[in-house]
Simulated assay, not measured.
Amino acid sequence: MRIEFDEPKCVAAGQCAMVAPDVFDQRDDDGVAVVLDDTPGPGQHEVVREAAAVCPAAAIHLIES
Rank of each mutant, 00 (worst) to 15 (best):
1 M>W: 04
1 M>G: 02
1 M>Q: 06
3 I>E: 05
3 I>N: 01
3 I>T: 03
5 F>D: 05
5 F>C: 01
6 D>T: 00
7 E>G: 09
7 E>T: 12
7 E>V: 09
9 K>P: 09
9 K>W: 01
9 K>C: 14
9 K>F: 09
10 C>F: 06
11 V>K: 12
12 A>K: 02
12 A>I: 00
12 A>C: 09
13 A>T: 04
15 Q>D: 10
16 C>D: 01
17 A>W: 02
20 A>L: 01
20 A>W: 00
21 P>K: 08
22 D>F: 08
22 D>L: 13
22 D>Y: 07
22 D>V: 04
22 D>P: 00
23 V>W: 00
23 V>C: 07
23 V>T: 08
24 F>N: 02
24 F>Y: 06
25 D>H: 06
25 D>I: 02
25 D>T: 07
26 Q>Y: 09
26 Q>W: 10
27 R>P: 07
27 R>W: 07
28 D>N: 11
28 D>P: 07
28 D>I: 08
28 D>H: 11
29 D>E: 14
29 D>H: 14
30 D>C: 12
30 D>K: 13
30 D>P: 14
31 G>P: 05
31 G>I: 14
31 G>V: 14
32 V>Y: 10
32 V>A: 06
32 V>E: 07
33 A>S: 15
34 V>W: 04
34 V>Q: 03
34 V>E: 05
36 L>I: 15
37 D>I: 12
38 D>W: 11
38 D>M: 03
40 P>K: 09
40 P>A: 13
42 P>W: 00
43 G>S: 07
44 Q>C: 03
44 Q>F: 11
45 H>A: 13
45 H>N: 07
46 E>K: 11
46 E>W: 07
46 E>D: 13
47 V>D: 04
47 V>F: 01
47 V>L: 02
48 V>L: 02
48 V>H: 01
48 V>G: 00
48 V>D: 00
48 V>I: 04
48 V>M: 06
51 A>W: 03
52 A>G: 12
55 C>A: 08
55 C>K: 10
55 C>D: 07
57 A>V: 09
58 A>K: 12
59 A>V: 05
61 H>F: 14
62 L>P: 06
62 L>W: 00
63 I>C: 00
63 I>K: 12
64 E>D: 15
64 E>C: 05
64 E>K: 05
65 S>C: 10
